[in-house]
């Protein structure tokens, strides 16, 4: 009864692409229980839809025949599974001990100045999300930061400023994204609710 209901809600405008469906089928062969594939499938869903809005979680629950509650519990626990849209460029600066000792606070100050947003915020144009991140474990090359999936090591404030200015130029050309680098933007246009928390109630 419950499964049938969830299948209904997932049909509400959202569906996985055939390629993602095939990857999910392969993932399911790797685990003796379907829930084992949950985190990998949430990654795939995030790649496809940009972020894990409530309807996406319902789709995942229906796909894996799991309760919506268990999918939500797992999605909420992990910081890299996005519960709100992020900017096209997700700038994450490590401010843990080793990077702090090597000047990471200057990088945060540089980002705040250039982007005009504070850590934890997304710019109004939807181009940048700025965050302080915990140890990226490349401390011998501190200070470190990540922009989307790319690492930057031994970064000086001047190098960082140049990088951010280049991304601003690129961003004007590309426009805001739907939240996750590489997500399929042809079928998933940017979400109007950028920067706001979704309701998972």
């Amino acid at each position: 009864m419950r499964e049938a209901k969830m299948a209904d809600s997932s049909a509400n405008g959202l569906a996985f692409s055939p390629q993602t469906k095939a990857r999910i089928a392969e993932l399911l062969t790797r685990y003796p229980r379907k829930q084992g594939a949950l985190i990998p499938v949430l990654w795939l869903a995030q790649e496809e839809f940009g972020w894990l809005k409530p309807a996406v979680l319902e789709l995942v629950a229906a796909e894996l025949q799991l309760s919506k509650a268990s999918v939500l519990a797992t999605a909420m626990f992990y910081t890299m599974l996005y519960k709100r849209p992020h900017g096209r460029f997700h700038v994450q600066i490590c401010t843990n001990v080793a990077c702090y000792l090597r000047g990471s606070d200057d990088l945060v100050a540089t980002a705040v100045e250039v982007l005009g947003i504070n850590p934890g915020e997304t710019s109004e144009d939807g181009l940048f999300t700025l965050q302080q991140v915990q140890c990226l474990c490349a401390c011998e090359r501190a200070p470190t930061l990540q922009v989307n999936k790319t690492d930057y090591f031994d970064v000086t404030p001047n190098q960082f400023r140049a990088l951010l200015e280049q991304l601003q130029t690129d961003g004007l050309r590309l426009g805001p994204s739907i939240g996750w680098p590489g997500a399929d933007e042809s079928t998933n246009p940017p979400d109007a609710s950028t920067g706001t928390e979704a309701s998972y109630a």
Partner: peptide, 9 residues
């Protein structure tokens, strides 16, 4: 993920 660590990488 232990802060300060970079060996398994």
């Amino acid at each position: 993920g232990e802060p300060g660590t970079f060996k398994d990488r």
